[in-house]
Design a protein around this nucleic acid. Structure first.
Lengths: 306, 306
DNA sequence: TGACCTGCATCAGGATTGGTGATTGGCCGC
DNA sequence: GCGGCCAATCACCAATCCTGATGCAGGTCA
């Protein structure tokens, strides 16, 4: 068994095709075919079912893939360990974040990290989850913080923290700031929500539906800050994650209302490549981010929880 | 980087010599030298300090070794996983046990395991820890249950459970069966103990010394059952692990006395090769053994604890 | 102190391996 | 039924690795 064969296995599994997998790892289709065959022979088990339209992993292929990613991850860990041994952390980190976390959470992390490790180049990209996971899979991003979605082929997923959803209105619309609200017993809402591609949207829709919450109008805005700005200047309202709006507790530009019913949570998960470990710099940034995120989420749960 | 290089790295680290490592993995000294050199170049770090009397790992070598064992272990896990996928567990398991556990603990495990997996061949070896760890390192044993000792180069160590030491005498020597005893306030003892090579002996000696426990005579017997037999037929006494003597609770061939002072514990650890995972059969046997051991240890602590 | 031994590094040659590009054959959609 | 797509196979070539011999450094013993 060779490492190259494991890398090939991973590529084929993730691409579902010998040919495209071969391209991905800069090999030829014939070489790919031969190596997978050799691997199957050395393991004495068929890993993929071939068809004229590509390949699908067998049960054994699934298992082997899972292990192979772990082998490669450990393998990469060798280099990470050695790099971590250096007293001086260097290199560059690319991180992807969803808009929710870019308002409040990330700035202190970046400030602290940059002062702790001045020789690390930081790149940050703000986007929605689909784009971010594509970025991680393509290797453009080291890791990304996203809401939980499906289709994580080739990615390692770690749950980071859970946040609360908050009902947000303009100030002085008849409710006290920070007063709790039961959405099931309220006059029909004018809601600004993200579009149907957004991961939170599905959860919100399903809550609205199962609890029969009356909605007068929905406006779709895939722009967080615009949404908040609109809410502040009109009688439109929104439902937003605590991390996004906790800054309004002081500013009072908007009034925040903990939601007693229905219970709605926002999860944040970390995605990273399944078969490569984070670089030392990325790992450290990740730890800082995790720490700050749970600090903020904790505060949200305490002060904006129902 | 190649798997072969990692195997070489592991061998060199554990043997402390290119030449003997080469023999171990059926390679030549020159090939070994070249591969290690290639690995060092690909990692851009020196892994071993060469000397005319052998090699010693650098700090980087230590780290790389640790990771390499994990990589190889994961790698072996691929085959284990696939074997585990078979509905029918087969193969053979070789396990090493110290005498303490062979009196009471192992029989029910073997009985259960043999009936659950009738097609697995079981080999068991009873010996003292040094011999057992040598057996595991040589690959003769899949794993072994031993008391904690040093020198675990090349072995993965897992703590299994903790047991109590019990003071054992012949029946009717003036103490009630199961009555607790404080060894610090007792007439000078005639003790039968294992020899100085035994892992428990050092702990017992140090306890005797630090608590100034008076000892009239010590007889060294490296044979557990002979020790117990002698104790049953004379005024010699011994200190024995709960697992070993719990069978006497019913038989009353010997009287058992929980020790209130000094506090003495016996630990059991599992050792297995660091860079190969257990075979499915070995894993299952291991689980049964763990379960039974903690059942017995629990009972010892409950009924023979101080 | 000098002969000897041990252990690693190096070298050149040779065998094995793996990769390449072209070709074949099977299946699907048009 | 034809072209497109995909995997399997083959023969050839290149890279790699292994081998056995040799060199060199340090330690040991007489």
């Amino acid at each position: 068994m060779r490492l190259r064969q494991l890398r090939f296995l991973v590529a084929v599994y993730e691409e579902g095709s010998f040919t495209t997998a071969a391209h991905r790892v800069h090999a030829t289709q014939s070489g790919m075919s031969m190596q997978i065959k050799a691997l199957e022979e050395s393991l004495q088990v068929r890993l993929f079912d071939r068809s004229p339209s590509g390949v699908t992993p067998t049960r054994a292929g699934e298992l082997a893939y899972q292990r192979a990613t772990r082998v490669l991850r450990e393998l990469g860990g060798i280099k990470s360990d050695l790099a971590m041994m250096e007293d001086h952390i260097t290199g560059s980190v690319s991180v992807g974040l969803m808009p929710t976390t870019t308002r409040t959470v990330i700035a202190p992390v970046l400030a602290k990290f940059a002062s702790l490790y001045p020789d690390v180049d930081i790149k940050m990209e703000e986007a929605y989850s689909a784009q971010l996971s594509a970025g991680v899979m393509a290797g453009r991003l080291d890791f990304a913080l996203v809401p939980p979605t499906q289709s994580y082929r080739g990615l390692k997923v770690t749950h980071m923290d859970s946040d609360v959803e908050v009902f947000v209105t303009a100030p002085d619309k008849g409710r006290d700031n920070l007063s709790a609200i039961d959405l099931t017993g309220v006059e029909p809402l004018k809601l600004v929500l993200p579009g149907p591609d957004n991961a939170r949207r599905a959860k919100i829709d399903s809550s609205l539906k199962t609890f029969n919450i009356p909605v007068r109008a929905i406006m779709e805005l895939d722009a967080m800050m615009a949404t908040l700005d609109l809410v502040a200047r009109s009688d439109w309202t929104t439902i937003a994650p605590g991390c996004l709006v906790i800054a309004d507790m002081e500013s009072r530009q908007r009034f925040l209302h903990p939601i007693t019913r229905p219970a709605m949570a926002v999860d944040y998960v970390l995605i990273e490549p399944a078969s490569t470990p984070l670089s030392p710099a990325a790992q450290l940034l990740c730890e800082e981010l995790q720490a700050e995120l749970s600090r903020v989420c904790q505060r949200c749960r305490d002060e904006l929880g129902s």
